[in-house]
C-alpha cells in the first residue's frame, strides 16, 4: 500500500486516547498479578502464625518497607521504560536507595554481633526456600507486567524485562514477608535480594523475546 494511503487510513480511525496509558495499563497488569500472589500465598505456604506479635517488631516492618520500596521504585522506572524517549535517571537513583539502606543495616547488625552468631544471621533457617518462593510469588506479577508492556512501547526490551522482573520480585517478596519469620537484616539483604534478582534475570530473558514490537 502506498504510504499516503496508509496515512489516510490511520488518520481516519483516530479516537481520543486516555491520559496516563502506561501507568494505568501497568497497574492493571501488575496489580492483577499481585492479587493472584496474595491469594495463592496463604493457600500454599500460609501466613506466619505469630503475625499478631510480629507487627510489634521492627524487622517485620523493615522487610515490608524494603520489598515495597523496591517494587514501587522499579514500577516508577518501568512506567518510564514503557514510553519511548522518557528520561530514567531519577528513577534509577531512587531505585538504588532501598538496597543501599538494607545493606547498611545488614553490615551494622553483622558488625555488632558475636562471631559465633554471624552464620545464623546470614543463613537463618529458611535460606534454601526463601529465594525460590519469592520467585514463585513474583511470576504472576511478572506475567501481568509483561502483558501490560506488550501493549506499550519499550524500546529496550531486555532492560525493560529485567526491571519488570525486579518489580515483580519486589512485589512477590512483599507478599512472602507475611509468611516468613526471619528477623535478621543480613538474611534479608542476601536471600530476599537473591529472589528479587533471580526474578529480574527471568524478566530479562522473557523481555528479550516477548517485548518486541
Amino acid at each position: 500500500m502506498p504510504t499516503d494511503n496508509l496515512i489516510e487510513r490511520l488518520g481516519s480511525e483516530v479516537r481520543a486516547v486516555p491520559r496516563g496509558l502506561a501507568a494505568r495499563r501497568l497497574i492493571l497488569g501488575a496489580g492483577a498479578g499481585v492479587v493472584v500472589a496474595a491469594v495463592l500465598m496463604p493457600l500454599w505456604i500460609g501466613v506466619r502464625p505469630d503475625l499478631a506479635q510480629a507487627v510489634g517488631t521492627a524487622a517485620f516492618w523493615i522487610k515490608l518497607a524494603y520489598t515495597l520500596g523496591i517494587a514501587a521504585a522499579t514500577f516508577w522506572l518501568l512506567e518510564r521504560l514503557a514510553r519511548p524517549g522518557a528520561r530514567t535517571l531519577n528513577q534509577v537513583i531512587v531505585g538504588l536507595a532501598p538496597p543501599v539502606a538494607v545493606l547498611v543495616l545488614a553490615a551494622a547488625e553483622l558488625a555488632g554481633a558475636e562471631a559465633a552468631e554471624r552464620p545464623h544471621l546470614i543463613m537463618g533457617a529458611s535460606s534454601h526456600l526463601c529465594p525460590w518462593r519469592i520467585v514463585a510469588l513474583a511470576l504472576p506479577v511478572l506475567i501481568g507486567a509483561l502483558w501490560a508492556l506488550r501493549g506499550l512501547a519499550p524500546t529496550r526490551p531486555t532492560l525493560t524485562g529485567a526491571v519488570a522482573g525486579l518489580c515483580a520480585g519486589g512485589a512477590g517478596a512483599f507478599v512472602y514477608a507475611f509468611h516468613c519469620d526471619e528477623r535478621a537484616m543480613p538474611f534479608l539483604a542476601l536471600w530476599y535480594s537473591g529472589g528479587i534478582v533471580i526474578s529480574g534475570v527471568i524478566g530479562a530473558v522473557a523481555g528479550r523475546r516477548l517485548l518486541r514490537w
Binding site: T3, L6, I7, L10, V17, P18, L21, A22, A82, R83, P84, L152, A153, W213
Partner: peptide
Amino acid sequence: LIAVHTRRGTY
C-alpha cells in the same frame, strides 16, 4: 508510522 499510530498512548 503504524507503531507511532497504534502506540501513541505512550506519548
